[in-house]
Design a binder for these strands. Structure first.
Lengths: 143, 143
DNA sequence: ATCTTTGCAAAATGTTTGCATTGGT
DNA sequence: ACCAATGCAAACATTTTGCAAAGAT
């Protein structure tokens, strides 16, 4: 779990004029425990299992605010439901391998890929702010 | 518009034991007109504007079948709604630049990026079947 | 004391399903 | 004639919104 990230998140929220409500802090604590993408459902389950009841609406609201402040990143990994993951303050990040059979999500990092993406961004006429790479197929168990 | 792709799609469907219903053919015709991702809404609008009324359920069913046969590719470009695009039989493909302000979607292709992705796939222990790269930011008009 | 945050319930939205009817082969 | 495909309406699932009550500063 990332103390560093939660501190950063709470500070950024304060600076943006938000108060430290219980629901928001609970969501941050739960996200800090996940190094990779979590669905809103799993997040809610986590919160419940640690004894923190948080209304679903508050979860969505917190995630929205965190996303706007670039503290979390939204991913559509599952067709059904949104997933979110922490954005590391130092810019470190990974991408995702998704198994279409069992749904397993595995993170991976690849410097060569990052370089190629950097070049593609520079070649484009967009001002690219972030990027996602998703590799889909079968995991080693399902293949 | 891609005659080649529609022919390929219709053949593949036949071979898979599907009949040539009117709705399905209309969806294929509409997809053939779009070289890049279209939302289900735009697809429905297109169908309506060319005088073909197709029930929304039939559109979703057709897209589902086409996706299972790997004739179209589903993308979550828009948070709200699914998008789809043709899969070219020759394997040619592109990726997407998405403007977070105005929603514009621009396709781009980059051989260096493809090579880096190919390597990442080989390095993984997944059997990767397809991949998506999405670059998000501001387009030249919005920046 | 003030203004934000929360939870609930209700609404909104996109997608899927059941079923009677139509249409393809 | 048979079985698949379609359209409609209803069901569903997720996400958003309105509002009164609770909480933070």
């Amino acid at each position: 779990m990332s103390e560093e990230w939660s501190g950063h998140a709470l500070n950024t929220l304060s600076r943006a004029g938000f108060r430290r409500g219980g629901a928001r802090q609970a969501v941050i604590r739960a996200l800090a425990d996940h190094g990779c993408a979590v669905t809103v459902f799993d997040l809610e389950k986590d919160l419940r299992s640690r004894g923190t009841e948080v209304g679903r609406a508050s979860i969505y609201r917190a995630l929205d605010q965190l996303e706007k402040l670039d503290l979390v990143h939204r991913l559509e990994i599952d067709k059904q439901m949104a997933s979110f993951e922490r954005v590391e303050p130092d810019g470190e990040h990974h991408h995702h391998l998704v198994c279409d059979r069992c749904g397993r999500v595995a993170p991976f990092a690849d410097p060569g890929l990052e370089r190629a993406i950097g070049k593609a961004c520079r070649d484009s006429d967009f001002e690219v702010q972030n990027h996602d790479v998703m590799l889909r197929g079968l995991c080693s168990n399902c293949a």
